[in-house]
Design a protein around this nucleic acid. Structure first.
Lengths: 233, 233
DNA sequence: TGCATTTTATTTGTCGACAAGATTCTCTAG
DNA sequence: CTAGAGAATCTTGTCGACAAATAAAATGCA
């Protein structure tokens, strides 16, 4: 058996989506590292399809900013844009605030159920000490809040920022994580849910800002520590 | 002469870009109306290339939200999302404010030259009574301001919103436009430039908000008028 | 041995073709 | 004359192949 995958009879039209989802997950989880080239032919071979749907997926990933298409040269996983990191934090903070505010204004009962479910899932992985899951489910929680806010434009930008944040957090947060309960983020999420349910826009804004500031501060501390270590060596 | 275009020896790799730019312009200027299907074969014939680069361009346009890919069915120009229009206005107003604020903070001398150039171009088409050009160059002005603000995340969202705005303005603004000088928008742009140059963040914020509110209000008035006419008939 | 240049090999962008799925047309039964 | 099943047509998604462009290797020269 030279071929590990036998063809599972994919349906017509699902090829590009499969490649897109696979690559996206591998990029965001740093299985594919920034700068790493992506081999079209290898992928075609691995997923047993032609290059056409793969190139289509790469074009979509490029639109998301996850890969960079170098003309007539290889496609590479996009670098994390460190010189622009403070701009990233700025946009992230604004989106935290805006989406949480809008959630307080426009949510309905079903939204609260969904948000609550995400928060419970988040709490579970925190208890389990599953850091990768924590990053993922924190993202899901805030996406659920943003969806309750009903603004697709903010949702799109916020999703993109949260994805980019997944890569950054993986780099700086994961190696230094030590589980402790009750985790402050869980409590902050709980406070947000309460404020959203009470439709208290101002409190939502304040909580979101504090939450964002804390995350940014934490990442910056870790980055600084990281840099010092580099100098020490 | 059955064929209007002779092939101008395109360079390798420019095919998709040509299609993308062409379609994008035709969509935003409403030459291609919302809901209109896009014929891949026809385009391939017209631009004398194969369907592959055309499909690639369509995928990119779909990522921008300008077209909708219906699986196994035709690709159509995206509808203008009227039920979400107030969310569009909300996001637009926020981006006006944020980008103008950041321009005041982070611009340099070259940015001011560029912004001034766009404003002059804008003023020229206003004088000429060229409404289509007005819409286009108003967009260019604000993109220049956003570029001076140096935040690529805001710039991307703002560009998308301004593009979508081009379609909406074409629908509601164009038919009712009557030129008058000095146009208030020119004066408001001038005030913005002055506040940016003085790095007066608060004034920028106020001016941007007022500018956005005025535009939104004007569009809403025209839409209301339009609706009344529909009822009358 | 080191550097410049030609040759080879790999990879990308584009093409024409074909099959699955959807749409339209046609023919027949009621 | 209408409605529905089936056939024919058209469009899309995918494929394998080929040529342009780049990268790598090999060769020649100082």
């Amino acid at each position: 058996m030279t071929d590990s995958d036998d063809q599972p009879e994919r349906k017509r039209g699902t090829g590009s989506r499969l490649v897109y989802d696979t690559l996206r997950e591998e990029i965001l989880s740093l299985v594919l590292q920034p700068g790493e080239p992506i081999d079209e032919i290898g992928l075609a071979d691995r997923l047993s399809m032609s290059r056409t749907p793969i190139r289509e997926a790469l074009v979509r990933l490029a639109a998301d900013g996850l890969v960079t298409l170098l003309p007539n040269r290889s496609t590479v996983v996009s670098q994390i844009d460190f010189p622009n990191l403070h701009r990233f934090f700025d946009a992230m903070t604004l989106m935290y605030r805006v989406t949480t505010r809008l959630a307080a204004e426009f949510h309905d009962a079903e939204d609260l159920v969904e948000i609550r479910a995400r928060q419970d899932a988040f709490a579970r992985v925190v208890v389990a000490g599953d850091t990768a899951g924590m990053i993922q489910l924190n993202r899901d929680f805030h996406v659920a809040v943003a969806e309750a806010g009903r603004n697709p434009y903010y949702l799109q930008l916020f999703s993109r920022l949260l994805d980019e944040g997944r890569r950054i957090l993986r780099l700086y947060y994961y190696p230094t994580f030590e589980p402790r309960l009750p985790h402050p983020y869980i409590q902050e999420h709980e406070a947000m849910i309460a404020a959203i349910a009470e439709r208290d826009v101002d409190t939502c804004d304040r909580l979101a800002k504090d939450h964002a500031d804390k995350i940014v501060q934490q990442i910056q501390q870790m980055m600084a520590r990281d840099l010092r270590q580099d100098i020490k060596l």
